[in-house]
Write a protein that binds this DNA or RNA. Sequence first.
DNA 1: TATGTTTTTATCGTTTATCGTTAAATTTTA
DNA 2: TAAAATTTAACGATAAACGATAAAAACATA
Lengths: 69, 69
Amino acid sequence: MGKIVLRLDRMMVERKISLNDLAEQVGISNVNLSKIKNNKVTAIRFSTLAAICKVLKCDAGDILEYVEE
Amino acid sequence: MGKIVLRLDRMMVERKISLNDLAEQVGISNVNLSKIKNNKVTAIRFSTLAAICKVLKCDAGDILEYVEE
DNA sequence: TATGTTTTTATCGTTTATCGTTAAATTTTA
DNA sequence: TAAAATTTAACGATAAACGATAAAAACATA
């Protein structure tokens, strides 16, 4: 079964930003951002996703990906 | 403040599929899919998003978009 | 090796919000 | 008009984000 995967790494490397800094700028805890980054969440609030997109200056598609089986 | 918007319309038109049919194939209620389609939700489960992507044969970025202020 | 920094993992509790169901309202189609 | 499709509303049950804290692991630097 296909699934949605989160890929923050690429944009974080591109923006040269650490997890702690990104978490602070996004406005969520570094613990929670770590979970998001490592696909340990099964859903996401749009407010959180939008905040990430804003800080990373990217689109949702740059972070969320559908990968089929 | 930027936000995430859902755009199912385009792909639904492209795939020529009705809301009721899509809901059934995706495996969620038509009521809930209607909410998703009309941006009446503030979060989404990846299982739901993946199922939509699968049926519509598209990527997450085709459905989710970050639009800034 | 030792020390400090960053990231990840693990619990736990609170809060948010999906999703289903039912029913009603609205819009679309014929 | 009538039927079908879509949207809206209200409610409850359940799933899961998210925060806080602490601990562990990974990483870096000297």
